[in-house]
Amino acid sequence: MTQHVKIPQDRIGVLIGEGGETLRRIERSAEVSLDVNSDDGAVAVEKTGDPILGMKAPDIVRAIGRGFKPDAALSLLDDDMRLFETIDIERAARNDNDLRRKKGRLIGENGRTRELIEELTGADVVIYGSTFGMIGGPNEVDVARSAAEMILDGAPHGSVYSFLERKHVEELKHQGMEYHEFSG
C-alpha cells in the first residue's frame, strides 16, 4: 500500500540529504520505498517490510517537512509510543500580523520559550511556517501541546512556564526521581 505525503519544496533537500543519504536511511530504517517528486513536494511512501515500521514512515516524512531534523524525525521509530503532532498556528490567528505575533510568542525572546517547552517536556519542538510541531511520548506531546495552546490563547509566559515546571516536577516524581530547584 502506498501513502502520499506532501512537503514544502524547501524541505525536499533535507528529506533527500547529501547524495541521497537521508532518503536511503529512512528507507532502510522504516522498511519503505520513497519516491520524491522534487517539482511539487509530493512523496509516495510504499511499505516494503515490517508494516509497523512502515506505518511510521509518513510521519517521518511529514516531520521533516515541518522543520524537524532527520534524526529527530527518525526517533519516531525508537518505540511504538513516540508521536508526531502539529498545531496549525494560522487557525488561532485573526490575520497575518496576529500570526506573526503568535509565532513570536511561541518562539520567545532568543528562542527561549521554545527551548523551555522542549527542556521541560522532553519533546522535540519546531516552529516552521505556520505550524508548531512536536515529537515525543504521549505525555510529553500532551504537555507541549497544552503549553503551546496556552500561549496561543494569550496566557502570560510566566503562567505557562509555571505550568511547564509543575508538569516537569510531576513527571520526575512519577518516574521516582527527586527534583531539586537550582539556586545560583
Rank of each mutant, 00 (worst) to 15 (best):
R24C: 00
R28Y: 14
R28V: 13
A30N: 04
D35E: 11
V36A: 11
N37L: 07
S38H: 05
D39H: 12
D39V: 15
A42R: 09
V43E: 02
V43S: 01
V43G: 04
V43Q: 06
A44N: 10
V45M: 09
G49M: 06
D50Y: 11
D50P: 13
L53K: 10
L53I: 00
M55L: 06
A57Y: 06
P58D: 12
D59R: 07
D59Y: 02
I60K: 14
I60E: 10
V61E: 02
V61P: 02
R62V: 09
A63H: 00
I64Q: 03
G65E: 06
G67F: 04
G67W: 00
F68Y: 03
K69I: 07
D71L: 14
D71S: 12
A72G: 10
A72D: 14
A73R: 00
L74A: 09
L76G: 02
L76R: 00
D79W: 04
D79Q: 00
D79A: 01
D79K: 00
D80S: 15
D80N: 14
R82F: 10
R82V: 10
R82W: 09
R82N: 09
L83F: 11
E85K: 06
E85P: 01
T86L: 13
D88A: 00
I89C: 00
I89E: 05
E90C: 12
E90M: 14
E90R: 14
R91I: 13
A92C: 13
A92W: 13
R94W: 07
N95C: 03
N95F: 04
N95P: 03
D96K: 13
D96P: 11
D96A: 13
D96W: 15
N97I: 12
L99C: 02
R100F: 08
R100K: 06
K103V: 01
K103L: 03
G104P: 10
I107A: 04
E109D: 13
